[in-house]
Nucleic acid binder design. Structure first.
Lengths: 129, 129
DNA sequence: CTGTATCCCCGTAGATACTG
DNA sequence: CAGTATCTACGGGGATACAG
């Protein structure tokens, strides 16, 4: 273990952030909610994430006890993801974060425009979350 | 703007996480609380962060409207950091995250041991937060 | 005391092609 | 359908030395 990892184990918030501090995990939690979603459904709803990264994130979240992975031995294969109790307990906190952002958001027209343009360029049909 | 940045502007949670999703920002908010702290005090309290990174993070947080930087033209120089209203509003949410982690924490003796060893090796006197 | 200036490592994440 | 396998690029973060 290197010094830089110390934070992960030395305080509760450090641990919490190491479990959900990545780029996509909070989004994934918010998208799953109290449902079961198939891998493909997740990929569609979070359309700006590559499948490889989505797989990686889900694996880590499974290891951290945030999500449950159910694999059905069918053809074609089907895999369903849902939140654990721990993951579900995170939902209200994430809602608070959304509220916080919405309340203190500073409107930036240029960024909004960039975003719109990009959505069209990439032909993305559905915004994330 | 590249596709990977899309998330930052396309949903509230994405924006929120881009403002505090870094490795140190939540910790910094939690350490400052409702006080004014000098740069050196921050560095001591979060002793596993390098001064360069601390400076960088504080700059970004200032730009995001999370912290206030007051520079006193003295010799030796003195700089005090405090939270904005926006930053303060984040505190209760971070406390909830701590509670969440504490409640669902899975005790890992090996990691705890590694951490203790490292603290001694690095001669770190004070744990973060 | 409070930063800058460099240099560098390593992990995250993206693109693309392939598999059971 | 739900992933793997590879390769690559980028940038956050760290160590160290120096500056005002």
């Amino acid at each position: 273990m290197v010094k830089s990892e110390l934070m992960k184990y030395s305080c509760p918030l450090g641990k919490a952030m190491s479990a959900l501090g990545s780029k996509w995990k909070p989004i994934i939690v918010l998208v799953i909610q109290d449902r079961k979603l198939r891998f493909g459904e997740l990929a569609v709803r979070i359309n700006v994430i590559s499948r490889k990264v989505l797989t990686d994130q889900l694996k880590e979240m499974q290891a951290d006890g945030l999500v449950i992975r159910e694999e059905f031995k069918e053809l074609p294969p089907r895999v369903e993801y849902s939140l654990t109790e721990k993951g579900l307990a995170l939902l209200p906190i994430l809602y608070l974060l959304e509220e916080w952002e919405t309340k203190y958001h500073v409107y930036d027209p240029e960024k909004e425009k960039d975003c719109k343009t990009l959505l069209e360029e990439k032909n993305v049909k559905k915004a994330v979350v």
